[in-house]
C-alpha cells in the first residue's frame, strides 16, 4: 500500500514539475504556478510516507499556502501577454540545461552515497514530532538556523529600502 502511494505521489510530483516548466498546452505563468502548487502538495505526500509529518504540514502551510499565493499574486499583477509570447533563447536554454545537469549530478551522487548508509538514523531524528525537530534546531544547529533568519531579515530590510520612493 505504501509503495503504491509512493509511486502515486512521486509520479504526480514529477509530472507536475515537468508541466510547470514545459507545458505543451499553455505558456501561461498562472498555469505554471498552479502546477508548482501541485508539485509541492505531492512532495508533502512523499514526506508523509517518510513519517515526517511536521515537514509535510509545513510544506503545505508555507510553500503551497503562503509562498505560492504570493507568487500568484505577483504574477497576476505583471503583464502576462509578453511572457506568453517570449520564446526561450539559446543562452537561456544553455544555462537552464547546465544548471539542471549539475543539480541532477548532485542528486545522483547523494542518492548513491545514501544507499550505503543506514537509512534508519535519518528517519528517527525527524520522526513526525515537533519536539525532536525543535530540540535539534536549538541544540545542534542553532548557528545555521540563526543565519537563515538573518538572511530573511536582510531580504526584508532590502525590500523596505528598495520600495521607498526617494533614495537619499
Amino acid at each position: 500500500m505504501e509503495s503504491l502511494f509512493f509511486y502515486l505521489f512521486a509520479a504526480l510530483a514529477v509530472v507536475c514539475g515537468i508541466l510547470m516548466v514545459a507545458n505543451p498546452f499553455s505558456r501561461n505563468p498562472v498555469t505554471s504556478a498552479m502546477f508548482m502548487v501541485l508539485t509541492m502538495i505531492s512532495l508533502a505526500g512523499v514526506f508523509v510516507l517518510l513519517h515526517a509529518y511536521f515537514l509535510a504540514a509545513v510544506q503545505i502551510l508555507v510553500y503551497a499556502g503562503a509562498v505560492m499565493v504570493l507568487f500568484l499574486f505577483v504574477i497576476m499583477l505583471l503583464n502576462l501577454k509578453e511572457e506568453e509570447k517570449r520564446k526561450p533563447g539559446w543562452v537561456r536554454m544553455g544555462f537552464g540545461l547546465v544548471s539542471a545537469g549539475l543539480f541532477a549530478a548532485l542528486l545522483l551522487r547523494s542518492v548513491a552515497a545514501a544507499r550505503n548508509a543506514p537509512l534508519e538514523t535519518a528517519a528517527a531524528t525527524v520522526d513526525g514530532g515537533v519536539k525532536p525537530l525543535g530540540l535539534l534546531l536549538f541544540t545542534e544547529y542553532p548557528l545555521p538556523f540563526e543565519i537563515m533568519s538573518i538572511l530573511l531579515l536582510v531580504g526584508m530590510v532590502g525590500v523596505v529600502v528598495l520600495s521607498k520612493k526617494e533614495l537619499k
Binding site: 498552479m34 502548487v37 509529518y53 511536521f54 509535510a56 504540514a57 509545513v58 503545505i60 502551510l61 503551497a64 499556502g65 503562503a66 499565493v69 500568484l72 499574486f73 497576476m76 513526525g128 514530532g129 515537533v130
Partner: peptide
C-alpha cells in the same frame, strides 16, 4: 494526527486559491 493544528492551518491556507483563481 500529532501535527493536527498545523494540518488545519495548512488546509486553511489553501482556501485562498479558489477565490484567486
Amino acid at each position: 494526527l500529532n501535527v493536527g493544528l498545523l494540518y488545519t492551518f495548512g488546509i486553511t491556507s489553501l482556501s485562498v486559491y479558489g477565490i484567486v483563481l
